[in-house]
Amino acid sequence: MSNSKLYKGSLTTIILKLLNEHDKMYGYEITQKVKELTKGELKITEGALYPALHKLEAEGLLDVEVAKVDNRLRKYYKLTETGTKETVNKLEELAEYIKTMQALVNPKLA
């Protein structure tokens, strides 16, 4: 995806939405899932993903769990109760944004 700037503001919403559907996920899994769902159109960069995850954790929206997988430790993220509520808000915000953009870009559809 060349114009990743457009997606930047939605990174946390994307993460929250994915976790809302998947109970618990680890960092690499999130990058792969996004790639798969958008057929490679959107790639979350590693450099942006972890800072975003740690920020959400500090805000109390995510909780962590650690499990031993193969010969290493894996850190899983899942939504807290506040996180689940925030997901609804964030998705509404995003829908509103898409609607506004739609009205601007394509007035006929809106």
Binding site: T45, E46, Y50, P51, H54, A58
Partner: peptide, 22 residues
Amino acid sequence: KKFGIFGFMDAIEQKQKAMNKR
């Protein structure tokens, strides 16, 4: 390389901030 030119720096910084907050 996929972490970009700043490597792990952003992750380190954000983690520090998050932990200070905690």
